[in-house]
Amino acid sequence: MELFLQSIVNSLIQGGFFALWAVGLVLIFGVMGVVNFAHGELVMVGAYTVWLLHAQNDVPFLIAIPVAIIIAMMIGLVMERFLFRPNRTDPLAGLICSIGVLFILQVIAHEVGGTGPAKQVAPPFNQIVEIGESLRIPMQRLFSLGVAIASLGVLWFFLTKTKLGWALRAVALDREASALQGININRISMIAIGVGAAMAGLAGALMAPLQNITPHMGHNVIITAFIVTIVGGVGSLSGAVAAAFIYAAFHTFVTAYFNGTVATICGLLIMVVVLIIKPTGIMGVKVSE
């Protein structure tokens, strides 16, 4: 019972991270049609920034987080302006370029952090919240979950209540028709990748105190983000968020009761099954051509 309750809490926290990873990928794919393979590396950049500023140079954690977001966002903007925009007509070219960026970011992280064991950041919030008799949640994880949910809420507000958010969704729906309505596609693309990369940077910053930081931590991120994106429906943000929490629950429970590798294998198989049975995902809608 104890393990069960603890697993539920853990899956919520994991779900928050998974959702942050996936919404960026969905935004970028939806608006620009590019699969950003370097998305996991943007998360890694966020984590490294926090390690460098907070753990190495004693910058307060709450200042390191916005810096991490800004750095990830800048990288995203550069990618859009110089790599994705010239290749707008060829989605494969954009994907290949993002693989190039992936290599470069990993090497930069390797150069900045040096070799040796994985980097760790001591959690800035040490308190432990106790609920009932058996449930103990570290404050750090609770903080991460709160920030993740708050930023997803802000994103939801932006996309559904502001004019810019409507424009962004319109471009994702039909790029040419939106251009004809006077929407500046390039500007919207910059906003989409800016927001997506910022979410990735935020996720990395929040994860930094909770796990080992290595140049290759993006690999796990991108696999999970793919699974979540596909299961949720490629164009659907709400689907991705729902799928993130469902998959996090699944992954946490299988890991707790069996093994982490088995959990990932099952996740990948679920994704293949979803692709076969309902390629539009659990929340996707069929788009007529």
Binding site: P91, I265, V272
Partner: peptide, 24 residues
């Protein structure tokens, strides 16, 4: 059953699953 982007991701997933089976 998939094409384009979906095929790319589907083939990636199937490959990773096979590779994880070797590891596990």
């Amino acid at each position: 059953r998939m094409t384009q982007f979906y095929f790319l991701i589907g083939s990636f997933a199937a490959g990773e699953a096979i590779r994880l089976v070797w590891i596990y």
